[in-house]
Every structure is written in C-alpha cells, then in structure tokens.
Design a protein around this nucleic acid. Sequence first.
DNA 1: ATCCAAATAT
DNA 2: CATATTTGGA
Length: 408
Amino acid sequence: MDNPNSNLDPVSHVDTFDELMISSSKNSPMKPLSMEDIFNPHGLKVLVVDNNGTSLLYLTRILTIYHYQVTTCSLPNEALELIKENKFDMVITEVHFSPDIDGIEFLEIIIRETGLPVIIVSADERIDTIRECIVKGACTYIPKPAKKEVIQFLWQHVARARKEMLRKKLMYPIDQLEINEPSLISFVEDKEFSGSSSSDGAPLEDEQNKEQPKKNRIAWTPELHEKFVRAVTILGIQNAVPKKLLELMNVPGLRRESVASHLQKYRLNLRKLSKNMPQRFTEQSFKTLVSSNACSPVFEDNNSFISTQPITETQEHFTVQDSINQVSSGAYVPYNDSFISTPPITEMHHPFTVQDSSIQAGAYRPEFEQDNGPVIDPNDFLITDESLQLDPIMLASYDPKSQIIPFN
DNA sequence: ATCCAAATAT
DNA sequence: CATATTTGGA
C-alpha cells in the first residue's frame, strides 16, 4: 500500500524513487528494496482514464489479466486528483473527452507534473492528433481497440522510465553523496596512527561499533557501493577501471586495490546474472527469451547490481510474432556477449496505414526532440519492414541512451 | 565444512 | 590492468 505523497511535484517523485531505491534510512540500517520489488509488473499501478465506459471496461479487463493493478476514472480532473493522492506507475488515457475538456492539455499536465509514462489509447487515428501527443511526450499512441498483445508489454515503458530515472540519479556528482564510512575511516585512522591515538581530537564518533571490530578490511557499505556504482555509471562500464574509479569516488583512504577487487566482483555478478540469457539473437532464442520472459532490469542483492530477470507471465504458446511484439515494446535483448536495452517502440502490426505507422514508430522519438518547438517529420522515424529484422544494433541505435552491459 | 567478500598474488 | 588464488569471517 502506498501512501499519498504529493506526487504532483517531479522532484518529490524522484525523491520517492530514491527512497525506494537506495534505502538510506540513515538511522535504521534498512535493507534496500530489491529491484525485483520495484520492477515487478505484477501489481504495477495503472491509472486508466477514458470517458467511454466500454473502453474503460475493456482496458481494465485486459490489464487485469496481466496483473496490472488498475484504477479507472472517466474525467481528467478526477484523474489529476487521483494522481495527487496515489502513486501510479503509468497512465493510460484517451485524448478526447466529452465536450470541453482538452485531453492534450491533460496529457501535458501529467507529463510536466509527474513525469509518469503516459500511453494514449484512442479511437482518433488522425495523424495530427497522434503527432501532437507524441510531441507532447506520450510514450506511445495506440489505436482502439488496443490489442492485448500490445497491452501486455506496456509495463516496459515503466521499466524504461525508471531506468532512465536511475541513470540520471546516478549521474549526479558523486561528492554530493554525504555518507559516513565508519569502517573505512577508522581503518584509515588505525593505519596512520597505529599508536594509541584515540585521545586526540575527532573522536571518530558514531557507530563504528556496529560491525567493525574486525580486521583491516574495508566494508563496502551500501553507501560506498553506491558511490562506486555512480562512478561506474559516469565512466561507462566499458571504461571503468580501478584508477579512474578511485579518482572519481574520491574517498580518502580507499585503496586502488580495493576498488579493483570490488570491480572484479561487480563484473562477476553481472556476468552471472547474464548467464541465463541466450547468446545469439536467433528466432529460437527469441522464443525462449520471451517465453522465459526475461526482460526487466532487476536489482539483485543488497548491492544493487543491475541485471535482467524474468518478470512477465509465462505463456505456453509463443509465436515469432509475439517475440517481435516483445521487442517492439522495448526489450532487453541479448547481443553477443552483452545486453542491449531497446527503447519501447510501438506495435507495428495494428490497423494503421503504412504512413501512419511511421508516426507510431516515432513514438519513441529521441529525447532531444522534446523541448524546443518540435519540428518533427514523421518520415524521420519511419520503420520499414527491413528494420523489423530485429538487428540489435539497429534497435539500440534508436536510443541514444541505450546501454551495453558487457558480458565480459 | 561451506560460502562469500575482500585481499593479495600473478 | 585483468584474472586467479588465498584469506578470514560468518
């Protein structure tokens, strides 16, 4: 159960995420929630807004099948209230409401105030409407009736949004992290003044008591590890080497060897977690991938390693088409020894004309198009049959932020 | 004995 | 710097 927290503030939204993500109840040594807790699509909270009762019912029914947790609402104003009072993960909405309410404005408000992923499901298939919604920041635009195969994978928009949020967070200057590393500090002190120094100033205060009367080993506390992860994020895992990491982390007394050791362990974990995934990007592996439903970024242990892990419902009969849909919705796909996360791209097999579906493809337009007066040519985002060949590199190229997690 | 994080050796 | 091996604590 979540509580009401003024959610209309983008900043507090991030804070909320922080809270979930990194624990840090400074006083109580609480364990960070696992990514699994956070990313489990089962129970993902979706707000569905539509004037049309039938649509509402239809969407609810399908969403429920896939274990989304649905809240419905028929008017934007009510919706805004609901959003204020609850924490949703995603909003699905029409753009047209009875007479006088402007759905586009509604969309803008949600995006601006909450940053939540918004999916438009509408009977309006006019290209201008679609373009406007996408430009205003909707994740995607789905014509009615939305097929269940499309709805099934909508959670990936949430996953992506969260991943981006995490990434942003990790990009903050490392020094901003105010953390106490009792173990480390006392270790350093010990080393420098191995004598009976304790009497002097700086009584080393606080809780070195906890679990520290051990050896001269540094402890990779969650805080220290976060610093480490931030450094890795900034450098990019590819270029993350002990020396640079050490520099970036800027932790007094931390030794390069320690960082190296930790890096080794970190990579080991990444690798281990990748093991389950198929190595090659074949049709068959795709079936396996999809049927094992391995698609979501997951934090493993308390140490917050990013990986992928099965999350959706297992289905018995998967077709190649299903696989394509999966990727189309933005999946974490294997590529040689790495994984590449693809941004969600919209379903391409719905009843749109060829031209219109290019707009659909544009649903995942690059971020930088967003702000300035958008001059977006739908053709820029055309997805051809050729591009449907599911070439991972091609897919990744759609997302400037796509990240490659090295397998080794 | 077993497992794992961290240190140390190559 | 990466990787393999050892150490030492639960």
